[in-house]
Amino acid sequence: MKKNYGPFYVAPVTVWLACFFVIPISIIVYYSFLTKGINGGVIHKLSLDAFRALYNPTIFQITINTFQVAILATVIMVSFAIPASYFMARSRFKNFFLLLVIIPFWTNFLIRIYAWMAILGNNGIFNNILLSTGIINNHIQFLYNTNAVILVTIYTYLPFAILPLYSTIEKFDFSLLEAARDLGATKWKAMASILLPNIRGGITTAVLFTFIPAFGSYAIPQIIGGTNSYMLGNVIARELTVTRNWPLASSISMVLTVFTTLGVLLFMRFNRSATESARGQKQKTVAAGAKA
C-alpha cells in the first residue's frame, strides 16, 4: 500500500474548523461558568449564576414557547409535506414540481418573511381588503403574535420538509402498495402500514431539518413576533447585545445546543433502526394484506 496521505488532505479542514468552530463553541461553554462583567464581557471567576438565571420564570416561559412553536410548526409542515411529496414523486411532471418547490426555497429568506409583512401587516393587503369592503372598521393586528411566528416559520421551512421526503418516496417501490391492495388492504391501510414505515428515514430527516432551524429561530420572531412571542434565540441576542450578560447568553446557547444535539442523537438511533426494519418490509406487505 502507498503512503497514507489522509492527514495531509484533512489538515486544512481540521485546522479551520478547530479555529472557527470548536474553539468558539468551547469558549461559550467556558463563559457560561463565569461571572458577568459590569459593562458586558466576563470576569474570570467561576460561578453558576448563569445557570441559576435559567430558572427565572420569564426564561422558562420563553423556553416553553420555543418548544411550542417549533413542535407545532414541525408537525404541521411534515403532515403537509408527506402527501404533497407523495404526489410529486408519483407524478409524470416530478422534475417540474421539484423546481416549483425549490424556487421559493432559494428565494431570499428575509424577502419571504417580508412578503408576510406586506400581506398581514397593519397596512398590509389583507387589512386593506377587509377595510375597503367594510367588513371591519379598524385594522386588525395579525402580526406580532405567536400564531404569526408559527405561520411564517412554516412558510420558510416547508421546503426543508418536502425535499428529503420527496427523495425518499421517489425511491419507494410503489408496486408494494399495489401488492397490499391485491391482498385486500384498504387504500389508507396500505399507506399507513406499507408507505409510512418504509419512508421512516425520510420522515425523521424532514422532522430534524425543520425542527432544528425552527427551534433555533431568531429572525422570524424578531421581525414577525411581538414581546410575548419571544423565542430562545431572541433572548440570546438580547443578553449578548443589549443587556450584555455574556454568561447568561452562553448558558442559554448551551441549552439550545444540548436540546438540538439530543435531537440529532435520537434521530441517528431512530434512523438506524429504520433501515434495519426496512429490510423486513416486504414480508410486512403480505402481513398487512392478510390482516385486512
Binding site: I27, G216, L256, T260
Partner: peptide, 15 residues
C-alpha cells in the same frame, strides 16, 4: 450543519 445558526453566530462573535 446540525446546530442552530444563531449558536455559530454568537460563538464567533464572542470569539
Amino acid at each position: 450543519m446540525l446546530i442552530p445558526e444563531i449558536i455559530i453566530g454568537v460563538s464567533l462573535l464572542i470569539f
